[in-house]
Amino acid sequence: MTAKNPKNRYEIAVVQGDGIGPEVCGAGLAVMRAALGGDGILNFSEYRAGANCYRDTGTAFPAATYDACKAADAIFHGAAGIPGVTYPDGTEAGLDFGLQLRFRLDLFANIRPVKLHPGVSSPLSDAARTGIDYVILRENTEGFYAARGGGNLVRDDIASDTGIITRAGTERVVRKAFELSRLRNGALRDGRRRVTVCDKANVLRSLAFFRKVAQEVANDYPDIELDFALVDAMTVHLVRKPDFYDVIVTENMFGDIISDLGAATVGGMGMSPTAEIGDRNGFFQAAHGSAPDIAGQGIANPYGTILSAAMMLDWLGDRHGDARLTEGAERVRAAVAGCLTDGNLPGDLGGNARSDRITEDLCDRLAVMA
């Protein structure tokens, strides 16, 4: 546990990435500067990684970028990957940046808030009345994705990947889920703090083990309700009763899938911030991809990246006991709420606001707040 020790200045490693990455990343940087009154608190240093980097240099994640990310107080990212820019095995080269960060920096907790903001419509008919506000906590270093690069292909006839679940990995992510629940106000439906374990314990021995370990950890949190859902049923529950959920904790691949489903209920991937954190490092980006088909057109939705910036400020502020950062995060969220409520919506939310106009509006609001 890091001692609460505010710094005069925090070093942020910035990787803009591919496709719309530079556009949404630039919006996030501008909004943070506006929220904090300039560059006095955060020092942004840019580094290369991703598909374009691989195409230009032959490496998707240069050693210098990794060293800078490891040493930085936090890592801020736009988006990565371009379809067709692949390794010889067919996997996307650009994705290695985020995947390697997770494993090499042990960013075990992937935190994905799913929240329906005022001014944003949902395809769920009751969402405007009941609201949607829960968190998916995805174990980030184990599960089926741990097999990337290590699977087997035999004679071009048989392919296999192996999922990995450990006691230590499960204990720490489940404990993080309970700690997150303690910081929240409970589920919208009944106000109860609740941790839901999402698994496939009825079929897979590894996920039955995940559930067993989660039950053991829950004994340390008698103030929080423990709930279970099979992953296939969860895809129904997140549509039928999203207001029942507070914090959902799950395996890596399951978390990837249900968080995209959750995003679709609150406006899409452009409204989905993400924090990937470990004991020392934190990596912040929107959950969406690089959308190269709209890159350079000025129509990308920057809200997800901007909300990820707010998560970064919160994490840094809490880690170092620095109220300047946590207050900045609150201002960013308030500006986003005001901007959305007033109808400043990009195309994917049914509006026609361009990325630069949204960013300008947010910065104007933050200038008044600051």
Rank of each mutant, 00 (worst) to 15 (best):
F108H: 10
R354T: 08
E171H: 14
L230A: 03
A329G: 11
K212T: 13
G37W: 01
P273H: 13
A286C: 09
L316M: 12
L29T: 08
F244W: 15
N202L: 06
D318G: 13
P83D: 06
L340I: 08
L107M: 07
Y134V: 08
V154A: 09
P6M: 06
G19D: 01
L188C: 05
R319S: 12
A300D: 07
G262C: 13
P242T: 03
A300N: 10
Y245C: 05
V266M: 06
R112S: 08
A35E: 10
A63R: 12
R357W: 11
V332L: 11
N344H: 14
E330C: 07
Y10P: 07
D356Q: 15
L230T: 06
A286Q: 12
I158P: 03
S290G: 06
L261S: 10
L95N: 09
A275K: 12
D96W: 03
I136T: 07
G267P: 09
G26C: 07
G58R: 02
D96L: 14
G343F: 01
Q215E: 15
I20M: 08
L261C: 10
D56E: 07
T235Y: 09
L105N: 11
T196L: 04
C339V: 12
K176Q: 15
I258V: 13
A51M: 03
V332S: 11
R331I: 02
R184E: 05
T141E: 00
I294H: 04
A147K: 03
L183I: 02
H237L: 15
M311F: 11
P113A: 06
E330T: 14
L325K: 04
I299M: 04
T235D: 05
D314W: 02
C53I: 00
A49R: 00
A72F: 14
S181Y: 04
V247M: 09
V14M: 06
P113V: 10
I136G: 05
A335V: 09
A68Q: 05
R104F: 07
S355K: 15
R129Q: 10
V332A: 09
E139I: 04
D73T: 05
D361A: 12
T130A: 11
N281I: 14
N52K: 02
L29W: 01
V120Y: 00
S45T: 12
R55G: 11
F284V: 14
K200E: 01
I82E: 02
G268M: 05
E11N: 07
M271T: 08
L207W: 03
G298S: 05
I75T: 14
G98T: 08
F228I: 09
T57E: 03
G143E: 05
D161C: 04
T59N: 01
Y245P: 01
K115L: 02
L42F: 08
R167Q: 14
A264R: 12
F210E: 09
T59R: 00
L36Y: 03
N43Y: 00
I294V: 10
G347H: 14
R48Y: 07
G298K: 06
R167D: 12
R104E: 15
L137G: 11
G296V: 00
R193F: 03
I358A: 05
M311H: 06
P222Q: 10
D18K: 00
H320G: 03
